[in-house]
Each structure stands twice: as structure tokens, then as C-alpha cells.
């Protein structure tokens, strides 16, 4: 059984001294608090959870990134969340979080692929969609978008290229865009196809 989150934190501080570990609560009903670890000690903490006989977290289930842009009072950061389970002892989850700055040049997190091979594709996806670089990843390149793509689409400040098409019943953002484009008049001229080339 996984002990309470405070005891997990104590165990981590014993195993990886110097790590800064905070407890982040989940929604009250979910009862899935997580440990926020600093970047330098993430690998050591993860290794501890994998190898310690009490936990044996040999299965990394889910790796994802979350983007928190800067607000008026708080700086922005990108968070990477790891969900660990154990097949040997059938318990879990232990949730690890780590934060990195949002600027692309400094957005680096140590990769946990050397510990769990299953993180490989998910970390590549986080790199592709968020721009998080995982140091120590064996093969970090884009996985879902094409290689020549330069943006990181899941960031909150991503603007897709302008590709407006007339909508018969616009609402919300599309209505605002329609008004910018000059109104709700439907297409008038016939759209005849002139053939190839």
C-alpha cells in the first residue's frame, strides 16, 4: 500500500537529501496528491521510487506537460507530470511533478526514459507539443507534427495560421472573426473549378 503523502515526502528527503519536495493537492474528491520536485533531483527521486523495496514503482503510466502562462502576480512555468504505478505490488499512483521556465531556451527537464522505457514516446510528444527539452532522452524529435514545423501547438499562446472560411451559423470566436472579416454575407459568385493547374 502506498503510505500517506507526508510519509512519502519524508522517505524522499531521506533518500535524496537536498531535494526540495512540496506536496500539491489534487481535487478534494480525487485524493491524488502529488510531489513537486525540483529539476536537479528529479532523476534521483524517480530512481528511489523505482528501486526501493517498499514501493517498486516499475511502471510509468502517464507523462504529460501542462502550460501555465505568466499571470499578473505569478511567473509562468511549464509543468511535467509523471504518474507511477507498481505492477509487482499492485499499488499506486505516485505522482511526481516538476516545473521548468517557459522560455524555449531554458525549458529543460531531465528525462526519465533511462529508468522507464515507456516514457520515450510520451516525452517526445511533450517536446513536440510544448517545447520541453528532455536532457538524456535517446531520440528527441518531433513525433506528431511534421519535422519542418516550428511551433509548439499546445502552448496557451499559440496562434494557428489564419485560415478563415465562411461559416453559415457562426458563434463565439468564429462570430468575432466573421465580423472582422467583413460581415455575414454568404459567398455570392459561383465557385467554378477551372481544372488542374
Amino acid at each position: 500500500m502506498i503510505p500517506a503523502i507526508e510519509q512519502l515526502r519524508e522517505a524522499v528527503l531521506v533518500a535524496a537529501p537536498g531535494a526540495s519536495v512540496e506536496i500539491v493537492a489534487s481535487t478534494p474528491a480525487a485524493q491524488q496528491p502529488s510531489l513537486l520536485v525540483n529539476r536537479e533531483h528529479l532523476f534521483a527521486v524517480a530512481k528511489f521510487f523505482k528501486e526501493d523495496a517498499r514501493f517498486q514503482m516499475d511502471f510509468c503510466s502517464c507523462v504529460t506537460g501542462v502550460d501555465y502562462p505568466a499571470k499578473a502576480d505569478k511567473p509562468g512555468f511549464i509543468e511535467v507530470v509523471y504518474h507511477l504505478y507498481s505492477v509487482a505490488q499492485k499499488h499506486g499512483p505516485i505522482i511526481l511533478k516538476v516545473r521548468a521556465p517557459r522560455e524555449l531556451a531554458q525549458c529543460e527537464v531531465p528525462s526519465l526514459t533511462p529508468l522507464w522505457r515507456g516514457c520515450e514516446f510520451q516525452e517526445r510528444e511533450a517536446y513536440d507539443l510544448f517545447g520541453i527539452r528532455f536532457t538524456g532522452h535517446p531520440d528527441l524529435r518531433r513525433i506528431l507534427m511534421w519535422d519542418e514545423f516550428t511551433d509548439h501547438p499546445m502552448r496557451k499562446d499559440y496562434r494557428p495560421p489564419l485560415d478563415y472560411e465562411w461559416e453559415p451559423t457562426p458563434h463565439g470566436e468564429t462570430l468575432a472573426r466573421t465580423k472582422q472579416m467583413g460581415g455575414l454575407t454568404p459567398p455570392s459568385a459561383s465557385m467554378e473549378k477551372v481544372g488542374a493547374k
Partner: peptide, 23 residues
Amino acid sequence: VPVGDGYGRVETPKGELGFYLVA
């Protein structure tokens, strides 16, 4: 949904399908 995050999963015929949701 109240503030926070959570992870739920089921055993679909293909494996473990999980949803990580942040509110």
C-alpha cells in the same frame, strides 16, 4: 468541477486508457 487535477483510468480492450484532467 472543483480546482485541482486527477487521473482516472479503465481497462479498455486495447490497454489502459487514462485521462489526466486539470481544472
